[in-house]
Amino acid sequence: MKRGQRLFGISLTFGIMSLFWILLSGIFDGFHLISGAICCAIVALISHDLLVKGGAEKMVQKSLRLFRYIPWEFWQIVLANIDVAYRVLHPKMPINPCVIEFETPLRSDFALVTLANSITLTPGTITILVDPETGKFVVHAIAQAPADALLVDQTMQRKVAEVFFVEPSAGGQSAHP
């Protein structure tokens, strides 16, 4: 990695670690602050390249768009759980599970993890397999209606692709039971 990115990685790791130190200890006298600074410096020097990898642009704008995405996500979580509660407490239990595959153009690690977590937390679907080279997702759906919302509407993929500055595409889809 270049020198500028290495310095940015070390300082970002140092900042986050010292934030956690202050959060978890709560005592603000000289001994604790100095020992906290020493421990954070050692950790940041040894393992700074776990957090900042080479080749990530536009990080500030991506973080801002991520903060705008989170309230919509929380509302989807509440809707998802009301839907599952309805299916559990109904006396006839209307479920009809099937397995679905689709593709997305996202490639970076963080974007794939965000999409997989969002699919797991939304009504009726859980991700099974993620392939990081071709962007293929295998998803288990509990009824036909959430599966259609994920395959046909593609709301979730459009929202996550808008966060990470990637154009969404109508990738190849297939549903096999």
Partner: peptide, 10 residues
């Protein structure tokens, strides 16, 4: 698989 749907979300 359906049991994991129930516990993992709720």
């Amino acid at each position: 698989y359906t049991r994991l749907h129930a516990t993992g979300k709720c």
